[in-house]
Design a protein around this nucleic acid. Structure first.
Length: 157
DNA sequence: GCCAACGTTGGC
DNA sequence: GCCAACGTTGGC
């Protein structure tokens, strides 16, 4: 059974439109152990991903992607010329891992962070509580509700 | 651009 | 193995 995740990207680095253009992309550059462990150990091909724009005005969920390649070494950590270079990474001990994701859809509307904070059923989301984790789990109910909000909006309430 | 929250590093 | 110092994230 597919699992659900949320991945953050700064739109001026790599936006949902960039992913749409490319079709699929490796998720390189994550340098946080918890996020790494999720990509290395937990994310499986076919898993659903919510695409989040951080450092945007406003920040929010903008679309969906899907995991197409499971955890493998992030080679940018071994490239001295890359801005994600980590001198402690090597072929024997790659240290950092990534997955590949593919574009699924861009939502017809942005689900802005302040609006998500108003939704009672989403109060337990990692996004709303431990906001710094850039790859994080999402519950199935949360994912389903977000898809519905993406299609129907937040309503007049 | 500020800065709070949080993660990492490294001396001891 | 503690924890102070430092660096980064990311909302505002």
């Amino acid at each position: 059974m597919a699992q659900y995740w949320l991945m953050k990207s700064e739109p001026n680095e790599y936006s949902i439109d960039d992913l749409k253009r490319d079709g699929r992309s490796p998720w390189y550059g994550v340098r946080n152990y918890q996020a790494r462990n999720i990509m290395r150990d937990d994310m499986k091909a076919g898993d659903e991903v919510l695409y989040y724009h951080s450092n945007a005005k406003p920040p929010g969920i903008v679309g969906r992607a899907r995991v197409v390649k499971e955890g493998y070494p992030d080679h940018t950590a071994q490239d001295p010329d890359d801005k994600h270079y980590d001198p402690k990474a090597s072929q024997d001990d790659p240290r950092w891992f990534m997955v590949d994701i593919e574009f699924v859809e861009k939502f017809p509307r942005l689900l802005a962070l302040p609006d998500l904070r108003q939704v009672e059923a989403l109060q337990q989301m990692v996004l709303l509580n431990r906001s710094r984790l850039s790859v994080q789990p999402v519950k199935e109910e949360e994912f389903d509700l977000i898809l519905r909000l993406a299609k129907e909006g937040f309503g007049d309430s």
